[in-house]
Design a protein around this nucleic acid. Structure first.
Lengths: 176, 176
DNA sequence: TATTGTTATACTCTATAACTATA
DNA sequence: TATAGTTATAGAGTATAACAATA
């Protein structure tokens, strides 16, 4: 009988040597924590809802956009190229969790929206997702979590400046 | 002429609402920071070395193992199933960056090692990788980085307990 | 001409499962 | 029987690039 292989990408920090630089250790630790949590979340989404993180992400974007979003807007928000959004939307539409509706102002465009079932399912997922996260984080004190949120906020701001737009002058817009 | 689509997975935090729970905000922020950095690193590895993070990871494991590692050991350390390690190793071997050598003690097994060229290239990559990371982190003060390393250490420890081995009694070992 | 979205293609990473050769 | 590693397969996610319809 076949062996069941099971593996989860989790602790990349094993590749840090003992005398590595502080920033490198920080990065590997950051990555390790993220992978540990992400693995759990992915498995939860798959086991409980047969869905994936990008699908969850797309639905999350729509959940906060009553009037729906155009494909290009989804693409930008998810930071993913247009073709991918088409693919994910196709799947979700086939499962009747989202619909494409014609955009009244631009006949090239659609507005993608959650269906009622889609919204219902997303809310359920999101609530459970939050419970997972809360549980995963509960080894930290409230104060420690606050500190982390704060420090990561600083880091994120710094990173955004460095990474956001390699060439903002290139305002080609949309799907890019 | 075709439009060049470019996208980087970066800021997932856009999916957080204003009144979300603290742990959820922490998680989304963690994910955002990691994605921002990871995107940069991936691009750097691709642009400068035509390689990927998993390949880098495998080479990093080997760099710290003078006598090489068996496939199963690589699999465990990288937290990836055996088939994947075979595939990545195949590619690296074809490029003469690693070699499989017969294991003297077990004729079923190989020891995978970096070639001289592989080690040379890895060291070069690793040095540049570290420079990228240092630069990405340098918006934080030394003290802030220390705090982060510390707090993430706590988090990681907690997570490891929760996630490490779903069933440690199952000592089937190896490729699993 | 430029933009919106789709299609087609290709590649990497991943898991599952069956298979082989040794142990 | 169990383990080491491979092979085969399948699927998701991603990017690139060309395309049709509309602006």
């Amino acid at each position: 009988m076949a062996r069941e292989e099971r593996a989860m990408r989790t602790d990349v920090e094993t590749r840090a040597g003992p005398d590595d630089h502080q920033s490198l250790r920080l990065w590997l630790r950051l990555l390790a924590c993220t992978n540990l949590i992400e693995t759990q979340v992915r498995q939860g989404l798959k086991a409980g809802y047969s869905t994936t993180l990008p699908r969850f992400d797309l639905m999350a974007q729509l959940d906060r956009a009553e009037e729906g979003l155009k494909m290009g807007e989804l693409s930008r928000r998810m930071m993913v190229t247009g073709g991918n959004v088409t693919g994910i939307t196709d799947m979700l539409e086939k499962e009747q969790l989202v619909v494409r509706e014609p955009d009244s102002a631009d006949r090239r465009a659609y507005r993608v929206r959650l269906t009622r079932e889609g919204r219902r399912q997303f809310r359920r997922m999101a609530a459970e997702h939050e419970r997972w996260v809360i549980e995963l984080m509960d080894g930290l004190s409230r104060r420690q979590r606050d500190q982390l949120v704060e420090l990561l906020g600083v880091l994120k701001t710094q990173l955004a400046h460095r990474t956001a737009s390699p060439d903002p002058s290139n305002g080609k817009g949309a799907n890019q």
